[in-house]
Write a protein that binds this DNA or RNA. Structure first.
Lengths: 227, 227
DNA sequence: CTCATGTATTTTGTATACATGGATTGTACT
DNA sequence: AGTACAATCCATGTATACAAAATACATGAG
């Protein structure tokens, strides 16, 4: 790990939150690798702050499950096992289904328009082939649906569950053979929400997750054999 | 709030975890009331530790949603609104359904026996009328089902979602007119898991939550009008 | 040569000190 | 009497200091 870790003084956030976001990002992007130790003094020097904000950030990462604490030894980046990924995806499958179901009931006309735009945008961006943009368009699309539920707890939960998959998102999206299917699945979800057809929406959402699961599991096994 | 807040040096846990558990418990039991400020120095004196473990505990409570942070003003116990409770219960309804569904697939013979015992035990304890014991038996029963899923993420999630309802559990259980229904619902869930009937299990779990929701909402409105 | 023991170093856990921003209170002026 | 402004206090945010535990390394005995 080299010194890509850089603090951005964007906001007037307390340092602990800045550190939290920084470390979180570093873990999710794989800059901090699973098993890597998070040593307070090193991080403090690296980020140019004292140990206090570092420790407080680690407490939050701990609860979020991104790092695990070993008593009297400190924190290290949590391992991603096939089991843990399976657990997450199992929950997400149910939660995403709830999400589209609620969206059917509660989505506003305005949000529906924006959802359509997001779908179209995704399709266009896929054609450009820019992975980063595609990932971003995908997030934007799902965000609209999650927000449409009006359930803040659900929003928070899905964010937390999604972050585990974050580092595999790229690999998944990189595989351009999947792009057609992605567009198709998004369209199915959109259509069923327009029709307020909860059953279909549920089904579509579950299929969407199942396919992601397949891709992620393939990726995980690939990494394993490579090692 | 008087000085019921007491640290129990049960374990060799770091102080931050002891403080975390202590404050968590205090919030869940209502000893620390919604809106009450958590002032670090006061708590530190009260618990006989320094500010550092207090602060770290608060960071975890913050992420868990039990306290909210106001910049430059510190932490206070999160308000429970009808909306937030609704949000939680909405998620729990879906997650509990997933739970029994998975349990149908994965529960072991041994766990099934213990589940039966827990059902019977609950029935017996209800007859004693001891509220505390009833609550405990209820938790034990649900714990077996959640554990049977083998999904650690799900276990953690349900724990987190349950804690919001914790302080209403008593009121709900106190109402002895509900006891018959509770026993009935537990039995329905147990039976469908035995038969591996996922659909029925789901339905039963959802009904179980719906009834709790009703009771909790009644309770909340009662509190509101009382104020 | 291997293993154990003791010491030194490193790192966490905890406490405390210092700085800053907000809130409150008091006073003066309208 | 009410409002505005200033001084003071208090709590948080941050940094640092101190203590205890764990690890690593070296030295010595078997």
């Amino acid at each position: 790990m080299q010194d890509n870790l850089q603090i951005t003084m964007d906001q007037f956030l307390p340092l602990r939150d800045v550190v939290f976001n920084t470390l979180r990002q570093a873990i999710l992007t794989g800059e901090l690798k699973p098993g890597e130790r998070l040593m307070e003094i090193h991080l403090a020097n690296r980020l140019g702050v004292s140990r206090t904000p570092i420790r407080e950030a680690i407490r939050k990462l701990e609860l979020e499950g991104l790092v695990i604490m070993i008593p009297r030894r400190g924190a290290e980046v949590a391992q991603i096992t096939e089991k843990s990924m399976n657990d997450v995806l199992e929950v997400r499958r149910a939660v995403d289904a709830l999400c589209v179901e609620l969206a059917c009931d509660r989505i506003t006309e305005d949000e529906l328009v924006r959802l359509k735009e997001a779908c179209d945008n995704f399709e266009q961006v896929v054609n450009t082939g820019d992975i980063k943009q595609i990932a971003q368009a995908d997030v934007a699309l799902h965000d609209i649906i999650v927000q449409a539920t009006g359930n803040m707890r659900l929003v928070q939960l899905i964010n937390n569950l999604s972050e585990q998959m974050y580092r595999y998102r790229f690999e998944y999206i990189k595989d351009s053979s999947q792009h057609g299917r992605l567009i198709e699945e998004h369209r199915m979800i959109y259509d069923s929400i327009v029709r307020k057809d909860k059953d279909e929406a549920c089904k579509a959402a579950k299929i969407h997750i199942d396919n992601q699961k397949q891709a992620i599991m393939d990726q995980l096994r690939l990494e394993r054999t490579a090692r």
